[in-house]
Nucleic acid binder design. Structure first.
Lengths: 330, 330
DNA sequence: CTGAAAGCGCTTACAG
DNA sequence: CTGAAAGCGCTTACAG
């Protein structure tokens, strides 16, 4: 910038004004633009942020569970789309369900002056983010609500979706419906389990803990859990696999055991090829792109000055019937 | 930091040294640490970068085609894993196969002082990155080689993989093998087409352009293309679907047409549930996590001072036989 | 080892 | 409208 000023024969202030689109006499502006062109000058955004009054950086941070999981990567995509419209770029990191890592990432992003943070909380206490909030950083949670801090959250309707799934299986005549879920300290896993319990209760059915498998964290674990369930005495006639990786493992297990098309299955989350298996997979589908977009919109609304009380936005889910959930018990 | 110095009763320089782990008398260091603790001080990383001699920011930028595509999101995951070990965080953006967007993202990352850039090139000219290189930014390409700039690139063995796929179909007795590919200006699409052509030629078979469908950009387009191919006169007996989205659409079309298990198929890229359909999907699988890790490792090697000539690292692919590629022609 | 001072690349009152 | 000067939060020669 110093060099641009020298070449254009104006002061640093004038260059800064031109670069920022402030009012400058046309002839001076032209000289500056020419010099910028000639030198290939580009403003140093970090230095600009450091000095400017509002301290905005045009960047946000996104902390998700795992970018490698398509559910979260589509959330990321939704966030990016909204950020892009604003010319805002995004730092992304995976917490891998680790509270410490979640904190480290938020910290690293904060130390780089992000304007806002969109977080999938992994730990049980997000009060450490008060510090960012005091610094004016916008904070929005996604997929799971925060704890020990009051902030906007964008969630899927987990309990309703799970109820829908289980009611659907009950309507098909099932009474022995297994639940397979992620770690029972994760909000979405708890909510989906709650929906399962409620649907059974509403139908006058008792929860049989032998049909409940929790802390199923991968498709391999889903595979194993289903294999054991089906090989046990008095196996379930239907499965509610409450997460995409579990569903993938479960289907594989059903196929291997020759039970796909015999044991009913409803999954939570849609997966690729779910309509190509025979029968197709009945699922309760979330809309992760919409969830990501909604979170980013909420964040920018806050950055634009929205001071209303914290909101909880619930994005609806929908049941997609493709066959596997419409199988009657043997 | 000023405040920390005041509370600890030392100079700014001393605080800076303590924060940076330089040698400082133990008692002073303790006073600084206490003050840091008390005030909840955290160093402003951007100001630090601005002033420090090496100007490193502890951040890199990743420009990929589309985070929403699981292939790229797993590359991102691989990059992140290696960056994490170094305490480096990552900006991510999707170019959506748009050269201008690619450039904008690289520019936005550069203006924020990233130490390095990992790029999936979308446009046909990456010479604009010379500017970043001159500024000391490390540059590594991934999935596709750069053009008009010499730099490290980490690629999958596309042509060999495609050859393998088509040879496999030929070995099963096929002569009418359709090729379905992405836009023919994309490196990976070109290479896979080349592998297809070469495998046919090696077997003494001519390319029948009526069996070639290019610019297939989505699973919906893959579905349509397969439907038309199979409904035409003299349809192919086998399909080589050279990208994950195309494979997904193709399988769906085969299922809808009642041809899954009848028309052979080999896909490029593995997809979820590929072993749950009947028959399972035979694919040439890339290893996107390894590709992402290799790219990040190359980048950090450069940042660590590796001045050797630009390398092209080719990550092998492997054929996974699951049934759909082992179907003989009718 | 420590501190006072200069300065990274910018923006922004302030005076003209 | 323009420029000289101060200063954002830091690091780093430099002198002691």
């Amino acid at each position: 910038m110093k060099e641009v000023a020298a070449v254009a024969g104006v002061s640093l202030s004038t260059v800064s004004r031109v670069v920022n689109g402030d009012d400058v006499r046309a002839d001076l502006a032209k000289r500056v633009h020419d010099a910028v062109q000639e030198l290939g000058y580009r403003r140093d955004q970090t230095a600009s942020t450091l000095r400017r009054a509002d301290r905005t950086s045009g960047s946000i941070g996104l902390v998700i569970d795992d970018v490698g999981n398509p559910f979260f990567s589509v959330i990321q995509r939704g966030v990016e789309e909204v950020a892009r419209e604003r010319g805002v770029i995004v730092f992304v990191g995976s917490s891998d369900e680790d509270a410490e890592r979640e904190h480290e990432l938020a910290d690293a992003f904060g130390a780089r002056g992000v304007d806002g943070l969109i977080m999938v909380p992994a730990g049980t206490d997000q009060s450490y983010l008060q510090r960012e909030r005091r610094a004016g950083v916008g904070i929005v949670f996604v997929d799971r609500p925060p704890r020990r801090i009051d902030a906007d959250a964008v969630l899927s309707d987990n309990a309703a979706g799970a109820r829908m799934a289980v009611e659907h299986l009950i309507a098909a005549g099932h009474q022995r419906i297994a639940f397979l879920g992620d770690r029972p300290d994760i909000f979405t896993a708890i909510e989906r389990r709650r929906g399962y319990d409620e649907a059974l209760a509403a139908a006058g059915l008792a929860v049989d803990e032998r049909l409940v498998r929790e802390a199923v964290r991968s498709s391999a674990a889903g595979y194993e859990a289903v294999r054991r369930l089906l090989e046990a005495a008095d196996p379930p006639t239907a499965l509610f696999t409450s997460q995409n990786l579990i569903t993938i493992g479960a289907v594989r297990a059903l196929v291997d055991l020759g039970r796909h098309g015999a044991t009913a299955l409803v999954g939570f989350d849609d997966v690729a090829l779910s309509d190509a298996v025979k029968p197709g997979l009945t699922v309760v589908a979330q809309d992760p792109a919409a969830v990501g977009r909604a979170a980013a919109e909420r964040l920018f609304a806050r950055l634009d000055g929205d001071l209303s009380p914290a909101q909880e936005i619930v994005v609806p889910v929908r049941l997609i019937q493709r066959g596997s959930g419409e199988i009657a018990p043997a």
